[in-house]
């Protein structure tokens, strides 16, 4: 299989720490313009439409679903036909406490096999689609060799912007990305599992992010948490792992009415509690997460410790349960563990 396209001197997880030569770089005070900005930004190197959902079946079984479309640019432009330097790839996953099923798609840009349009909104690759009249009303489908899903999403609040109005800083050197989310989706739909279809309901969280160098050259990967508490509040926090056991953290506190509070480096902490051997790597699957400013002191546990995304550039992603000062559930993503 082809390795993620990267420049000659690839650094960091998936080469995301390499220099942004030639590509556009995020600036603070960017004025977002929708629906345009829901679409792709070809002059930035990496971009994604990242959906994670925590669902329950009729008998209460917990399911986690992931649908992600990535755009990776070999050059900051688009061209017609096969010579388009935009590469699209997507990951879909369905996780239960016992099973974790993964599928991957890769496509060239420029020929119609994959892409995103904004009016009406449609993000597709092969037969996987995330489409709707707009981002507030989506239908999400994907198929793998053993699983499939078809979900409807309705947004109940406006969009949420991370960092300083959507400018999310990743390191002390200033690497940043544009980052906004729609964390307030109500979901209903059908999962097709090997043993048959299951009707599910729950909630979902969509991340939209794009940049050209999301990692500094000293950062090896990140741990990202999206937690939805039973009280209605939500917390997005991530921890970038640097050399010599240093970390750079950032968090966004989202109130039930949709207002956000941004926290810069140090306010949010996440400490691994237990690790688990999966795919030949030791990966922490239980965490102690704290945001003292909001009184958050919780334990985050993976629903399925084996939620390893065995795709071209592998990482760990799966649903989690939250206990402690707040209860709830969410999603955890860990990258860069070798």
């Amino acid at each position: 299989m082809v390795v993620l396209p990267c420049q000659a001197a690839a650094q960091g997880f998936a080469g995301l720490g390499s220099d942004a030569e030639g590509f556009a770089v995020p600036q603070p005070d960017y004025a977002f313009d929708f629906p345009q900005d829901h679409g792709p930004h070809p002059d930035f190197r990496i971009e994604w439409w990242y959906l994670t959902a925590n669902l329950n079946g009729p008998d209460g079984t917990a399911y986690g679903v992931q649908w992600t479309l990535f755009r990776s640019a070999l050059a900051p432009e688009t061209r017609e036909g096969w010579s388009d330097p935009q590469i699209w790839f997507a990951h879909a996953a369905l996780t239960t406490s016992r099973r974790h099923m993964v599928a991957e798609r890769i496509a060239r840009g420029g020929i119609g096999q994959a892409g995103v349009t904004v009016d009406p909104f449609e993000a597709w690759i092969d037969d996987w689609r995330m489409a709707g009249p707009g981002l507030d009303d989506l239908s999400v489908t994907a198929t793998g060799t053993e699983f499939a899903y078809d979900l409807s999403l309705q947004a109940t609040r406006p969009l949420v912007f991370h960092g300083q109005n959507g400018f999310s800083v990743k390191s002390a050197q200033g690497q940043a990305s544009y980052y906004y989310s729609q964390p307030f989706y109500d979901v209903s739909g059908t999962l097709t599992l090997p043993q048959g279809p299951v009707e599910v309901t729950g909630s979902a969280w969509l991340d939209r992010e794009w940049s050209s160098q999301p990692l500094a050259d000293t950062q090896s990967g990140w741990d990202w948490f999206s937690l939805s508490f039973d009280s209605g509040e939500k917390l997005m926090g991530f921890r970038l792992r640097e050399e010599k056991d240093a970390f750079y953290t950032s968090a966004t506190w989202i109130a039930p009415d949709g207002t956000t509070t941004a926290y810069s480096d140090g306010a949010f902490t996440a400490r691994p509690l237990n690790s688990h051997m999966v795919a030949g790597r030791q990966v922490p699957v239980d965490w102690a997460v704290k945001l003292p400013a909001k009184g958050v002191d919780v334990t985050v546990k993976a629903l399925n410790p084996d939620a390893w995304m065995s795709v071209s550039v592998p990482y760990w992603e799966g649903p989690v349960t939250v206990d402690g000062s707040h209860g709830g559930r969410g999603y955890l993503e860990m990258t860069g563990y070798e």
Binding site: P5, Q7, L74, P85
Partner: peptide, 27 residues
């Protein structure tokens, strides 16, 4: 199409100085 070709269909050695970018876009 090296991205969609299954298995070892294209074991073309990506040698020094040949990147995927070159192969796909410049030819």
């Amino acid at each position: 199409d090296p991205l969609t070709a299954p298995g070892n269909v294209a074991p073309v050695g990506m040698q020094e100085g040949t990147s995927l970018d070159d192969f796909l876009t410049r030819g």
